[in-house]
Amino acid sequence: MFEARLAQSNLMKKILDAIKDLITEANLEISSGGISLQGMDSSHVSLVALLMRSDGFSPFRCDRNLTLGVNLQAMAKLMKCASNDDILTMTAEDNSDTLNLQFESPAQDKLSEFEMKLMDIDSEHLGIPETEYDAVIRMPSSEFQRICRDLGAGIGGESVTIACTKEGVKFSVTGSVGSGSITLKQTGSVDKPAESVVINMAQPVTLIFALRYLNSFAKATPLSESVSLSMSREVPLVVEYKMNDTGYVRFYLAPKLED
């Protein structure tokens, strides 16, 4: 038996909206630690890793580990039937082929119940090596979203070069109408961590990425006020949105390498 009760349906809506365009279906892995998911996009360039720790739910019950194959687009549509502040309860029997979703209004005067069919999904679980990153940049998530949008829409760029030095982080593109760059300097004050740009750097690093993936990752912006970018030479970028202390959505993106 699996049961997980989440105080705000809104969180699940935001998570599904953040990942459903990149991966349309995935296995939700349920264990005593919580709910996790890993999936690659169809072109094998990016990967989504989700963790919702059990302590983010009240209660959370998982008698034995379960793998629930879910069509994320369908689940996102179903979640739209919940009001943002509805209490979400997910339940599944041990050998069930359905996931039950229950939305309860805060005043407890409305209860919606849905049964979602599960599917068998062949998924390759990849081992992600532990990496010491050359640079970890933390910035407001809205700023990251804005930069990705402006460089894509404004310049028509396909590839973005991200160069990180102690002074700041520079995003550059060359596109159909010309070229451009946006540089963010490290902010002095750390009074407001969510509004700061903080660079932790062992050595300068420059990498090239497909901009459209970064724009897709930025759909997770509502999940967190800040985002971190972890970069090392010739390894995938990690873009992480933390959900308070209860979990994260991480996106991994393979770089473009010189021929």
């Binding site: 690659m40 094998h44 360039v45 990016s46 990967l47 390759e124 679980h125 990849l126 081992g127 992600i128 090596p129 590839s159 090239i208 497909a210 390894v235 995938p236 991994y252 393979a254 770089p255 473009k256 390498l257 010189e258 021929d259």
Partner: peptide, 13 residues
């Protein structure tokens, strides 16, 4: 020019 790498070349199955 630059070429898009696959994640599979970094992460093991």
């Amino acid at each position: 020019g630059s070429k898009q790498a696959s994640l599979m070349s970094f992460f093991k199955k």
